[in-house]
Design a protein around this nucleic acid. Structure first.
Lengths: 246, 246
DNA sequence: TAGTGGTCTAGACCACCCC
DNA sequence: GGGTGGTCTAGACCACTAT
């Protein structure tokens, strides 16, 4: 009969839409260009808005689109390469990183962090909050957990909290010898506080990088950094693949 | 008035649902346990099924739930730690990895890969497909691109394609001296072929690990491995944080 | 065949940004 | 105020799995 070769795998509409849009982005749109709004796109493709949104969501997840409420949908630039694993291990805060110490408080760490530190439950640790920016855009929000035992030199006369205290903790950390470090990457969704720092809505996909810093045979500190998954490509190793460009 | 302290931030329903379900998972459910089906859960919480699904999708993204069509929704075990960055750099296929060479073909690589290799566009490369399994479950699907110039010893008398050919290419690679390697991690969604190997639906979230292998001052090979983002935590560095457990 | 999650629709209203 | 994306509803049908 006159049927074409299909009927075998009824590809979901949103999946087909995604490929069509991907091709269009590659050929007909420039970075930063604004797409038609969702209602018009849905009408143009003859699908419900929810279906169109399913395709847009995947494209945003893949870093091809950027959507902002009240503004519109734009074509995203290629992901930034962000160096995460230093070949020459160093304490956080060392080197010319674009990190900004925001705040510091003494509190009991979450259970998952307490397990990585060698602390018993309930013990207080210095909790330093930092932000990382690249090319003017926020890319990461980090919480650094430092057991009080790791920085005995921290004087009581230092500021009890705030950015000054955060810098004091980092300064003390860097006096220690770093034996090595350990990292893990997993997918997560941004908590409300992190989302605010990253200029995203809560629940936005993030890459969670957990780093253990070893010193004197113990775990001297643990950092939990959440990177924007839509705009970042995390690089590890000898030379950083920053050269990969559009 | 008698209003409680809210009204300031009308938290979305699905977000609130997520926290409620998270707490329930922590306290009332065991790993592997089956949740009530979506229609019943939605009725129980008094929301539309689509809203309930939005919460479930996030929990699946965070590795807390596992959903299978035709079966149901179960409580997922903690993510597996999967070693990705070796301190002692080695060619793929070396060591006691749970990798399985599946196939091999000679083809022109995608543009993004051709850019990483030093090949000109259109040049053929050996393309080896491998699968990685851990604890009996598929965790990664990899495509390894090896320029023909990297493995001149590959004899014509080797099998022209198939798993045997794949193993022959890996064997030849391991004869070369490896100067170092480079890795990048980013979020992606599974293509249809990868999804099949990973036992997931197309579009499932994956962590894409791109590795460049350097030898003799050039890029000897490039590997693009897609890891299941729901079940895997990628570990890098000195000792691998495999100890992190539930 | 019965039950599950996956896809899709056609609406509605809300939060946010910019003019 | 007008336009954008974000949330939510109440249905329907489909694809898959197990029995």
């Amino acid at each position: 009969m006159g049927t074409t070769q299909l009927d075998t795998v009824p590809e979901p509409k949103y999946w087909h839409l995604k490929t069509v849009l991907t091709d269009a982005l590659d050929s007909e749109f420039a970075v930063g260009e604004i797409l038609p709004n969702e209602r018009e796109l849905a009408a143009r493709f003859g699908v419900a808005r929810a279906t169109l949104r399913q395709a847009l969501e995947q494209l945003e997840l893949e870093g091809r689109l950027q959507r902002r409420r009240g503004v519109g949908t734009t074509v995203a630039p290629p992901r930034m390469g962000v160096a995460v694993g230093d070949t020459e291990h160093s304490w956080p805060g060392a080197g010319p990183d674009a990190w900004l110490a925001v705040d510091c408080a003494d509190a009991a760490p979450p259970a998952a962090v307490a397990r990585l530190l060698d602390t018993v439950g309930g013990e207080l640790v210095h909790t330093v909050r930092r932000t990382r920016r690249t090319h003017g855009q926020p890319v990461a929000a980090e919480l650094l957990y430092v057991p009080t035992g790791s920085v005995p030199g921290l004087a009581a006369l230092d500021a009890p909290s705030g950015a000054a205290r955060a810098r004091a903790v980092l300064r003390e950390l860097q006096r220690l010898e770093l034996d090595g470090q350990d990292q893990a990457v997993e997918l997560g969704s941004a908590r409300a506080d992190d989302a605010k720092q990253l200029d995203r809505l809560p629940g936005a996909p993030v890459l969670v990088v957990t780093t253990r810093y070893f010193t004197a045979g113990r775990t001297g500190a643990v950092a939990v950094a959440t990177y924007r998954a839509d705009t970042c490509r995390l690089t590890f190793g000898d030379s950083g693949m920053q050269l990969l460009a559009g």
